[in-house]
Design a protein around this nucleic acid. Sequence first.
DNA 1: TTAACATTCAAACGTTTGTTTGAATCTGGA
DNA 2: TCCAGATTCAAACAAACGTTTGAATGTTAA
Lengths: 203, 203
Amino acid sequence: MNLRSVKPPHETRTRILDAAEELFMQHGFGGTSMRQLTAKAGANLAAVNYHFGSKDALVEAVFRRRLDPMNSGRIAELDRIEKEAGGRALTPEAIIRAFVGASLRMIEDAKNGGRNFIRLLGRTYTDPQKHIRSLIGQLYAPAMERFKNAFERALPQMPRDELVWRIHFMFGTLAYTLAATDTVQLIAGCKPEDRYDARLLEA
Amino acid sequence: MNLRSVKPPHETRTRILDAAEELFMQHGFGGTSMRQLTAKAGANLAAVNYHFGSKDALVEAVFRRRLDPMNSGRIAELDRIEKEAGGRALTPEAIIRAFVGASLRMIEDAKNGGRNFIRLLGRTYTDPQKHIRSLIGQLYAPAMERFKNAFERALPQMPRDELVWRIHFMFGTLAYTLAATDTVQLIAGCKPEDRYDARLLEA
DNA sequence: TTAACATTCAAACGTTTGTTTGAATCTGGA
DNA sequence: TCCAGATTCAAACAAACGTTTGAATGTTAA
């Protein structure tokens, strides 16, 4: 009876999510109408409201689909390297690598449109609409808390304020770099990673 | 006969520009309607179309009002320090300082709402709408060309591609930092400047 | 097959958008 | 004072928006 909950239903749902991901990246949220969106997805105009409830709910679903697993993976990776280190303190580089790794893996996952999402995410960081920024802030919150604690243990001598500023600065740079890949291509896959490491060492 | 072209006309014009600057920053371009805009400016709904022609033309005017003098100032500053240096090569730091200085001066010019504009500008860097990004790209073009040449002279040993990437990266970081001042306050006025200098030295 | 449910579809809804219009009002020079 | 031009104003415009509706279609279990 719930077999159709995995066969045809999810099919249009994901087609809509994919179309939304690409169009939101190209034209923004307000700049994408339900009509072009459903047309691109090959679905009826009413399909979005049927499957998601509203346009806003669709926006949230687009982010949740990628962000939830990404951040879970980040926390898992952090747990892993902490366990691996035993009681020893982690280097800031290792922590950053655990965080950035998820983004890079997503960017290289071209066939699933992960690249689209990463660029969308980068742009959304500075979206003017309050409720959208607070949405991704909320989706990031658990992982953020976890990583902030890790940094505090790794850099105990650094003032709290300064640390928060540094973390924010790092995310900002990450977000922009990822969002701007259409202006200047990434030169090599591993290059950004080196950059961010260097970035942090500039302490 | 053209006396009124400096007294009452410019008054509503600038009131509209000020209101647009603030609302665009708060809610984006699409998120700001002509009705709330003209209401905030204390003008009639038709005033924007009368004075600027269209909403898009208003957007362009908002950017031109600040960006044109800013970039002229940057070029003039670069000319100044080049003349001051005689034939000697400039340091990259000095070039960056010439560029960033205009932004910092604008940010500190609180009474004229320059802060609003800088944040708006930072956000627009990653705006999804193509014609808006190409607009500010176009407004920046002359200054950009000038500074690229200056960097090439200052860093002759650096490959062209790498230099372009670095410049892009620097602007991205600058833009994001300026745009995000509502998330984490700037700690001190001169601090960002130090940061960017360090940023470049990470060559 | 039949009954029950999930999904699709075309059409219409009420709102809001940017823009236009034509008359009213204001302003400065002869 | 009177006129010409600039500016403001209330009202209306068509177009596009997100959403809702109710019937049609597809699908599964008995």
